[in-house]
């Protein structure tokens, strides 16, 4: 029972990341009709916004410490971060400690800008081209972005610690009346789950309850008619692309304490996210979210030893197996709409 609960939490947490990326992918596909294989790269850029913020807050002045020696026996050059010089050691350390959360002030503008530049500079030239062309160009773009990141940040994973307030686990067993420490789950992973839920709710609320969202939904349903009403739907769709990029970036930003970012992290999520979108139903936002959580949970349970003992390697193929079954029984996916990707 305890193990079941932990794997359920784990699946929800993993599914939250899938759902966030798939949500952005679906937004772009639903509005612009573009199959964006660079979406994983947007997740990665968000993750590296955290790294950049961390490095910015660690910018230091060099002080020579004659009492210590470096590896060559020379006096040790000690790095003293500017934030500690300016705000005092305690305040400086506290600011550095919260670098992941502070990265939100960098991630949102950067991702909006990246989304805008990508859409205006490249993607819009491929609206009327076949999906194969879109896949090729966006996949190429993802590789280029990855190599740029590698050039500046190296190939190794970069440790990005969470705020010390979220270190350790939360004893959910005790909180819900079970045996103490029977279900202990990392605090930051719970934070990630609730953060994802908040972002997903915000995106749905934005599309559902604002005039902008209403126009976008109308455009998704019938772009030409909305255009004939005198509404500049292209401009709104560009903003939607920026929002989708932002969602992916925020997902990456908050994921860094869980998975140390490296230049290829986007590719690790990309294929899975496409499976999530297809299973959920192309163009269906609720489908993407539902499918993200469902596949995350299934993948988590498939990793249990009791399961892999019966079907070795099932943890590696469960998502694809479920995708095949769902597409055979419901070709449009769980919540796919008629007419989407069926021309």
């Amino acid at each position: 029972m305890d193990e079941f609960l932990i794997q359920l939490l784990n699946g929800l947490d993993r599914g939250a990341a899938y759902a966030l990326i798939a949500l952005g992918l679906t937004l772009i596909f639903g509005t612009l009709g573009v199959v964006n294989f660079a979406h994983g790269a947007l997740f990665m850029i968000g993750a590296f916004c955290t790294v950049t913020m961390q490095r910015f807050l660690n910018l230091s002045q060099t002080v020579i410490d004659d009492t210590q020696k470096d590896f060559l026996g020379n006096p040790l050059e000690v790095e003293v971060p500017y934030v500690q010089s300016w705000f005092g050691e305690a305040a400086g350390l506290a600011i550095q400690d919260w670098s992941v959360m502070l990265a939100i002030f960098l991630t949102i503008p950067v991702m909006l800008l990246v989304g805008y530049v990508m859409e205006r500079g490249l993607i819009r030239h491929f609206y009327s081209r076949p999906h194969a062309d879109q896949i090729l160009v966006t996949f190429g773009l993802a590789i280029i972005i990855g190599e740029i990141i590698k050039y500046f940040y190296g190939a190794n994973p970069i440790q990005t610690p969470m705020p010390s307030a979220f270190l350790g686990t939360w004893d959910m067993g005790a909180a819900f009346g079970l045996e103490a420490n029977s279900v202990a789950y990392p605090k930051w992973r719970l934070v990630y789950f609730f953060f994802s839920a908040l972002i997903i709710a915000a995106v749905f609320a934005f599309l559902q309850f604002t005039t902008f969202g209403m126009v976008v939904r109308a455009g998704m349903a019938d772009r030409e008619t909305v255009g004939m009403l005198g509404i500049d739907i292209d401009r709104r769709f560009t903003i939607v692309f920026g929002i989708a990029a932002c969602v992916a970036g925020l997902a990456g930003m908050m994921y860094t304490p869980i998975l140390s970012p490296h230049y290829n992290i986007g590719m690790d999520f990309l294929v899975l996210s496409f499976v999530v979108v297809v299973v959920g139903g192309m163009g269906s936002l609720p489908g993407a979210v539902l499918s993200g959580f469902m596949l995350g949970i299934l993948q988590s349970f498939a990793s249990l030893k009791v399961v892999t003992n019966i079907v070795p390697g099932i943890d590696q193929i469960i998502i694809y197996l479920v995708a095949i079954i769902i597409l055979l029984t419901r070709p449009r996916g769980l919540m796919g709409r008629k007419g989407v990707m069926e021309d």
Binding site: E3, I6, D13, R189, L259, I265, L304, D315
Partner: peptide, 17 residues
């Protein structure tokens, strides 16, 4: 565990109990 799994949490969670 698969090489390059990234998130090992589903393999680590069973260690707890």
């Amino acid at each position: 565990t698969p090489v390059g799994a990234g998130d090992f949490s589903s393999y680590i969670a069973p260690v707890l109990n």
